[in-house]
Design a protein around this nucleic acid. Structure first.
Lengths: 204, 204, 204, 204
DNA sequence: AATGAATGAGCATTCATTCAT
DNA sequence: GATGAATGAATGCTCATTCAT
């Protein structure tokens, strides 16, 4: 990308600092001074690289969701069977309490904003579309493999899978308890699997 | 009780004004002046009834989630069979695009805050617990009726149901399209039902 | 004027403080803090009474030029003959080195701004029109009295009179010497009188 | 001289860019970046040639007023009779709406500053002195020719002539109307001529 | 109880200036 | 000579909060 002449590295440094600062304090409580301090640069530098505070957030969220999508893709590509891919997909989201906490704190801030601003929604839509594509491909593969319910509409299922993932992680975040991370992950995994499972013959 | 009669009315008036203002602009963008104007009271009055701006949000969310819980309970109590109760529960959440939009905008603001503050989380926990209880009772009833999968852990299932509901509504909100409200509601309903469904005999 | 509910007195206090501050430091060098300090009020008060810094200047200049016009009118009305009226008019402008210095400093700032902004120009036009009307009435009276050149176009002469007045005061201001104030005033008076004088019979 | 040949060119380039930028936006609204961009040089270069922002204005005005004086001198030298010289002098100032607008915008900015700073006033004094000398020589010539009023004090008349010129151009600038440029020029010319005219024999 | 004038801390932002390359 | 990244002081402005009436 030649889009930015100015050192791409420093931009990243500022974005990461902003991420940390927002995760800790929330978007509105964060000041450009906080971000600058956290990035170990002077306040002016933030404005040198970004037009304004909002531009930092906008870019941060494109960057963040982009990175997460990449990780999900990598995790899914590491498996061959649909069931394993889906498990890998879910596990790649439920990385660790620390990382999930940081990300979902920032992400909730973002969603709150996106609910009122079309430009934020657009960034999020790209992320949702990417996630939906991953799910859709896994579901289709699973259907071809005969492991997933063939009657499922891929269109409808993909968003629900993301709902369960995000919903579970938000609920976990609200517990404030790291120990429950695994519990919510398992609940998420099992629910998704149950949702995708084909009709079974009743054991008699 | 009688002591606060008059006050209580004005408190509600202010809370409702705050709700509208926050739904429109977001908590941080809203000023006490905005709230006062919208509630048709003077700025001083807001401080007379609430210690500070944050106290408005705190009380607002206790009040809001309480009202929603009441509506859910009423809807569920209007049905007798588990399947109908669950459908009524879900439908009572998916009221209308307008109402869902207003509530989820405010609720996302709240969740973002709750992710960093234990006191906010506590308010949310009450709501989650109430929702979980509703789900749990329906699931147990359904299991007794033989309509829901008897192997389901009620403990684990209840949060997932809420995840699907919240997750779907958040995703719908991010589309920015009122017309899709019904689509997400149906996806939510079908997924929940599939999740709760007992093992079925494969048609041969 | 019920245009402003907020204490008109305090507005004047702030305007006068702004006038003093601008006279001393120039519009751009003046900060809202300076104005507030000079008015012995807190910084917030200035913003409470005026939307922004520019609004202070705009109102200041309407107010200032209005006051000057009033003084000019009063001075002119105190005389009955055209020659005396004109002298009174000029003298009412050349009040004192101190007052002229303060006013013309601020006025030059204003003219510089007005040269680029139509809204400032409009305020100034009202002032120019008022001044031109004063001159025009005197000139017409003088022509009727037979004391002023009857061939003079009132339309054309009025602006030139103001040019001489403003031009002389600006030049005096640039000398930085209070002692020369009277010199420029006399030069102004004599030039204006010469300009208005009717054809004379050459002394032989 | 040779030492600065290259530098001098770039200085002029920067000064001219500054002139354009200030004419358009005003000194305070102009940034060094704007000037640098407009001069097609880097920001650092401006600081390389000028100690600071103010030094640009100071030099700009010395340069500008110098050029104007030269033009006035040339115009006056092109005529032999006092009346023609004076007309040429005035016409050389009223060049065109575009040029007068640019110059007087910048000049008003400068005068506002000069009203508070002795060092600026000094630059202006040189210009005033030069202008006064031109007028004085013409007036003296005219008196010798018997075309101008012999009783006129050259000392007193010269500044008034400049007052009329500057005053008329400032008033024209405040109209915002290019079409009136000629009107103000004519008013200026006629007033100056009337001012200088000798006593005339009344037609009987 | 209610008002709204007054306060001032805190913030985003701008920009002249410096300086390493 | 020339560049432009980096700095940080300074400013306009917002707004929660206080308090006299």
């Amino acid at each position: 990308m030649v889009r930015y002449k100015k050192s791409e590295e420093k931009r990243k440094q500022i974005l990461y600092a902003a991420f940390q600062a927002i995760a800790e304090q929330g978007y509105d409580a964060v000041t450009l001074q906080t971000i600058a301090d956290s990035a170990k640069v002077s306040k002016g530098v933030v404005h040198y690289y970004f037009d304004n505070k909002e531009a930092v957030l906008v870019e941060l969220l494109g960057w963040l969701t982009g990175k997460i999508y990449e990780k999900e893709t990598a995790a899914v590509n590491g498996q061959s069977r649909a069931v394993d891919k889906m498990a890998a997909y879910i596990d790649s989201v439920f990385v660790s309490p620390e990382k999930n906490r940081d990300f979902y704190r920032v992400y909730l801030d973002f969603l709150a904003r996106a609910s009122r601003s079309a430009s934020y929604r657009e960034i999020n839509s790209r992320f949702y579309d990417n996630c939906a594509r991953i799910s859709a491909e896994i579901v289709e593969l699973g259907q071809r493999e005969g492991m997933f319910d063939p009657r499922l509409s891929v269109q409808e299922t993909a968003p629900v899978i993301r709902s369960i993932i995000d919903g579970c992680l938000i609920q976990w975040l609200m517990t404030g308890q790291d120990e429950l991370h695994a519990v919510y992950r398992d609940a998420c995994r099992q629910s998704v699997m149950k949702l995708l499972a084909p009709e079974t013959v009743k054991k008699s």
